Amino acid sequence: MKQNKYDESEFFHKYSQMPRSVGGLNAAGEWTAFRGMLPDLRGKRVLDLGCGYGWHCRYAREQQAEAVVGIDLSEKMLERAREMTDDPKIEYRRMAIEDIEFGQAEFEVVISSLALHYVKDFAHLCSRVYRCLAPGGTFVLSVEHPIFTALAAQDWHYGPAGEKLHWPVDQYHKEGARLTRFLGDDVVKYHRTLAAWLTALLEAGFAIRQVSELPPAPEMLECNPAWEEEVRRPMFLLLSVGKS
């Protein structure tokens, strides 16, 4: 069994209190940029890797996608997704992202939001995504930025008065597992350099279309001053790639 913290009751309860769990896509700071990388979804078959509550699945159908499959390893996540979904053209399946075995060219669009930094062998997954994506198809993903994941602490360096002095980056080229703290619990994430993320996609056959490190737009800073931190260091990496 792959890592599955979200089926632990206390962890899932804490996750369910997060703003993005309550407010959905509009409460996710990276959503505007992620949405801008998506192709026209009308009439498309869409696969969501690590679908969680199914927010992206329902959005795809709102954009008139033909059919959507959302996968997640957490049964609690899928239970919540099914409770929030009333659409026979959205199917939720329980499986690990690493274990996907879909037919060749089964989807025109594959998406994944903040899930793939939990996957150990990203290169192998890329080959599986490439196979199930139709020619001309698009794969859009967001992950935690390598500057954010390099150190397991994932925290600022503080001054004597508790002020945030700088974001430490160390062991950047030492890729692999990081035991981090998330929602008060130990969680394993996998650190990769920016080059590693891009190379895995290129070697699988994808063409890079868009790369974003999510610099906060003025309106983001206006709505939420906490985004000032993202000016000092990137937290997210967003990629759009295509199959020729």
Results as ranks from 00 to 15, higher is better:
Leu179Cys: 07
Ser142Ile: 09
Val119Gln: 06
His157Leu: 04
Tyr130Ile: 03
Gly162Glu: 13
Val109Leu: 01
Arg128Asp: 00
Ser127Gly: 06
Asp99Phe: 03
Gly103Asn: 11
Glu101Lys: 06
His157Ile: 13
Glu144Ala: 01
Gln171Gly: 05
Asp121Ala: 07
Ser113Asp: 15
Phe102Leu: 14
Phe102Trp: 13
Gly162Arg: 01
Ala105His: 09
Glu101Met: 04
His166Gly: 14
Val143Ser: 00
Glu175His: 03
Val119Thr: 11
Leu141Thr: 13
Leu151Asn: 14
Cys132Glu: 04
Thr149Ile: 09
His166Val: 14
His157Arg: 08
Asp170Glu: 15
Arg131Ile: 03
Ala153Cys: 15
Lys174Gln: 07
Ala152Glu: 04
Glu163Leu: 02
Ile100Glu: 01
Asp155Phe: 00
Ala115Ile: 15
Gly136Pro: 07
Ala153Met: 08
Leu151Cys: 11
Val143Met: 00
Ser142Cys: 11
Ser127Trp: 14
Cys126Trp: 14
His117Leu: 07
Leu114Trp: 05
Tyr118Glu: 14
Cys126His: 08
Pro168Leu: 08
Ala161Ser: 14
Pro135Leu: 05
Pro146Gly: 07
Arg128Trp: 01
Ile111Tyr: 10
Leu125Gln: 11
Ile100Thr: 02
Gln154Glu: 12
Val169Ala: 07
Val169Arg: 06
Val110Gly: 05
Glu175Arg: 00
Ala123Tyr: 14
Pro168Ile: 11
His157Pro: 01
Glu175Val: 08
Val109Met: 02
Ala115Glu: 13
Thr149Phe: 12
Ser113Trp: 12
Ala161Phe: 14
Glu98Tyr: 00
Gly159Phe: 04
Val129Met: 06
Ala153Gln: 13
Pro168Cys: 09
Cys126Met: 11
Glu101Val: 05
Tyr172His: 06
Leu165Pro: 10
Glu98His: 00
Ile100Lys: 00
Glu98Asn: 03
Val169Tyr: 10
Ala161Thr: 11
Glu101Arg: 09
His124Phe: 10
Phe139Thr: 06
Ile147Asn: 04
Thr138Cys: 03
Glu98Thr: 03
Ser112Glu: 06
His173Ser: 01
Gln154Val: 00
Gln154Pro: 07
Phe107Ser: 12
Leu114Glu: 12
Leu151Arg: 11
Trp156Glu: 15
Cys126Glu: 05
Phe148Gln: 02
Tyr172Met: 03
Cys126Ile: 15
Ala123Trp: 13
His117Asp: 06
Lys164Gln: 12
Glu144Lys: 08
Ala123His: 09
Ser113Gln: 13
Ser127Arg: 02
Glu108Arg: 07
Arg178Pro: 07
Gln171Ile: 03
Asp155Ile: 02
Val140Glu: 01
Tyr118Asn: 13
Gly176Val: 01
Val169His: 10
His124Pro: 15
His166Thr: 14
Val129Ser: 06
Glu101Trp: 06
Ala177Phe: 04
Glu144Arg: 15
Gln104Asp: 15
Val143Gln: 00
Tyr158Cys: 06
Gly162Asn: 07
Glu163Ala: 02
Leu114Lys: 08
Leu151Trp: 13
Leu151Phe: 10
Leu151Thr: 10
His145Met: 03
Glu175Ile: 05
Tyr118Leu: 08
Ile147Met: 06
His166Ser: 12
Gly103Trp: 07
Lys164Asp: 09
Phe148Glu: 03
Val143Tyr: 00
Tyr130Lys: 01
Ala105Lys: 04
Phe122Arg: 08
Ser112Cys: 02
Phe107Pro: 15
Trp167Pro: 13
Cys132Trp: 00
Arg178Trp: 11
Cys126Gln: 05
Gln154Ile: 00
Gly159Val: 04
Val110Cys: 05
Gly176Ser: 04
Gln171Leu: 02
Phe102Cys: 09
